[in-house]
Design a protein around this nucleic acid. Structure first.
Length: 596
RNA sequence: GGGGACGUGGUGCAGUUGGUUAGCAUGCCGGUCUGUCACACCGGUGGCCGCGAGUUCGAGUCUCGUCGUCCCCGCCA
């Protein structure tokens, strides 16, 4: 084989008249009869090679090249003639061929490699190795590499140790469903694949490795989404002797480094910090997209004596009347559109949707009046306050929902997102980070009929809250937990961890995990905590989501080299697949019903 | 578990109220062509319309089932 002296991307005018050898794939062949152009591609770029008829057998051999053949070409770098220079097409130079070696022939691929045209994703996944050859995926995978390397460099420079934790580990009852791996040596028992390295990184703190990080693969056996795969990668880190702000600083620092190195963008730190309650009250979600406004305004106080029964009753029952304004959008909301929006609100849990349009009278007075879908029940006083509260101007519209606070928030949050989309209020190419902090420690699971941890059971609760509410209303207990949110995506989260055996036991008690359960499931952690555990805290960021955002991709599949489909299938390998009965027997496993 | 969208030459799409021969672009094959770069031009090849039932004189089109893909809800500490 003629080994390459240069990559395709390295060939520039500066190398004019040098003899070089390149290795790569045939991108395109353009045979003009008397002269033949072959574009060669590698991951560094593309370069045009020129074959001339006077070269005889070399020319005829080149004429039989096909797309995706792998070749070695030796030739002289030459400036293209005047008039044939197309900078944007790949430069001003080309290689005049002297020698060609076909390293391997390719059959016609099932889809275009050289074009960015749409291809059925199923097919892309079945031929992922070809899909990955395409420019977009090459760019994404290289970008992912760059992110990972930047992260490593950042942590390494700050005394963090990269430490691996087990992939075969113990099943934990809390949280997502585990992937299970049967044990052959301990028949009837199972390993689980880790949902995250959570417990191990805490134990590393106990061991004294006070700054840990890992690019960690995590596994969760739950249904998929555009931003969820059964296995995914976290940038996982943990520190001892720190407080929440220290973790935030490190997180902001690593994000800053990544955005700087990958996009050349300087992001502003520190990020905005919003409490969970404030986020819910203002945006109706715990991961608000701050690239646009549409924040909520509470007008409950002005409607306590509303003549509109649903509003009055909701408020009397401790509920609220809230909404948000869409400036200048009133003329776009026809009756049909409003009906559509109302249906959305109802689907999101609202009982109904009120709207108010501000209209300037066309007469000489030019007064601003409100047109609402509850005019009959709206007093002048209420209307005035509505206008004031939302600073309504001509052609503005505001949407209002009344009811129980949480329901109203969530429904308005859904509307906010939908209307931002419809009104094209979401600016491109900007990055709005924020921290959401003080999440509730527990929520009540109707299904399990017990309290469950909102973050995870090792999160430090506000000790004063714990004292006040553990016996009355545990959902009121706040946690020292924080999420980092970017453009409406939760890209990471973490918490201060419990480092007291007693607090940990109180939390387990509240979760309804009894003494025996604590011992069998988390005994090793509780044991460890008896031997001197440092106060510690940590965070984990979703690498796939982060890379997707940086790459401008909507789906994390497009930044994962070999992803699964939404039904958990690998189109390329066919996994999951049948196994031999012998394999099952070695594991003492058999089907209780014929799944095949 | 539930809802929605989709499945037509290798690829991307069109296909009317059910109607006779399923179109278009591109690829692929052959030819012409000495400066192209999505080369151009000429000719050709290529389809069990995902699969299976049903309705009908007749189904790519309608109905039911099934398989696959995608999106959303539930779920994801």
């Amino acid at each position: 084989m003629f080994k390459r002296t240069h990559t395709c991307g390295e060939i520039t005018a500066a190398l004019e008249r040098q003899i070089v050898t390149i290795n790569g794939w045939v991108d395109r062949v353009r045979n003009l009869g008397g002269v033949l152009f072959v574009t060669i591609r590698d991951r560094y770029g593309k370069i045009q090679v020129l074959f001339r008829p006077e070269d005889g057998s070399l020319f005829s051999e080149a004429a039989s090249l096909h797309g995706e053949d792998v070749v070695a070409v030796t030739g002289e770098i030459a400036k293209r003639p005047e008039g044939a220079i197309k900078e944007e097409m790949g430069g001003a130079v080309e290689i005049i061929a002297q020698r060609l070696e076909v390293l391997s022939k390719a059959i016609t691929p099932p889809f275009y490699i050289h074009l960015e045209s749409d291809v059925n994703e199923e097919l892309r996944l079945a031929y992922r190795y070809l899909d990955l050859r395409r420019q977009r995926m090459q760019k994404n995978i290289m970008l992912r590499h760059q992110v990972v390397q930047t992260v490593r460099a950042y942590f390494n420079a700050r005394r963090f140790l990269e430490i691996e934790t087990p992939i075969l580990t113990k099943s934990t009852p809390e949280g997502a469903r585990d992937f299970l791996v049967p044990s052959r040596l301990k028949q009837g028992k199972f390993y689980a694949l880790p949902q995250s390295p959570q417990l191990f990184k805490q134990l590393l703190m106990v061991s004294g490795f006070d700054r840990y990080y890992q690019i960690a693969r995590c596994f969760r056996d739950e249904d998929f989404r555009a931003d969820r795969q059964p296995e995914f990668t976290q940038i996982d880190y943990e520190m001892s002797f720190v407080d929440q702000r220290d973790i935030m600083d490190i997180t902001e620092g690593v994000l800053k480094a990544v955005f700087e190195s990958v996009l050349g963008i300087a992001i502003e730190t520190p990020f905005t910090v919003l409490s969970y309650t404030a986020a819910m009250d203002t945006y109706g979600t715990d991961k608000p997209d701050l690239r646009y406004g549409l924040s909520f305004c509470d007008v409950t106080d002005h409607f306590k004596d509303s003549g509109f029964e649903p509003i009055r009753q909701a408020i009397q029952n401790g509920g609220v009347l809230k909404g948000f304004k869409v400036a200048g959008a009133a003329p776009r909301y026809s009756r049909k559109m409003l009906e559509e929006i109302e249906n959305l609100a109802k689907k999101a849990g609202a009982k109904g949707l009120l709207h108010a349009k501000a209209v300037k009278e066309t007469d000489s007075t030019g007064t601003l009046t409100l047109k609402t879908n509850f005019d009959r029940h709206l007093s002048a006083f209420e209307g005035e306050n509505l206008m004031k509260a939302f600073s309504l101007e001509d052609r503005d519209i505001c949407f209002l929902i009344s009811g129980e606070r949480k329901t109203v928030n969530v429904a308005l949050g859904v509307l906010r997102g939908e209307i931002a989309k419809r009104e094209s209020l979401i600016p491109k190419d900007i990055f709005r980070f924020l921290w959401v902090v003080d999440f509730p420690m527990f929520s009540y699971s109707e299904e399990e009929r017990r309290f469950v941890a909102e973050h995870h059971p090792f999160t430090m609760p506000y000790l004063s809250d714990l004292e006040s509410y553990k016996d009355t209303d545990p959902t009121k207990i706040r946690a020292h937990a924080y999420d980092v949110v970017l453009n409406g995506w939760e890209i990471g989260g973490g918490s201060l961890r419990i480092h007291s055996r007693e607090v940990q036991k109180t939390v387990f008690d509240l979760l309804g995990i009894d003494e025996a359960g604590q011992k069998s499931k988390f005994g090793f952690l509780l044991d460890a905590f008896q031997y001197g555990v440092p106060p510690h805290a940590g965070c984990a960021m979703g690498l796939d989501r982060l890379v997707a955002i940086l790459a401008g991709e909507e789906f994390i599949r497009d930044v994962i080299p070999f992803p699964k489909t939404t039904s958990g299938i690998c189109q390329m390998t066919g996994a999951p697949s049948d196994v031999e009965n012998e394999q099952l027997e070695k594991l003492s496993l058999k089907f209780i019903k014929d799944a095949r």
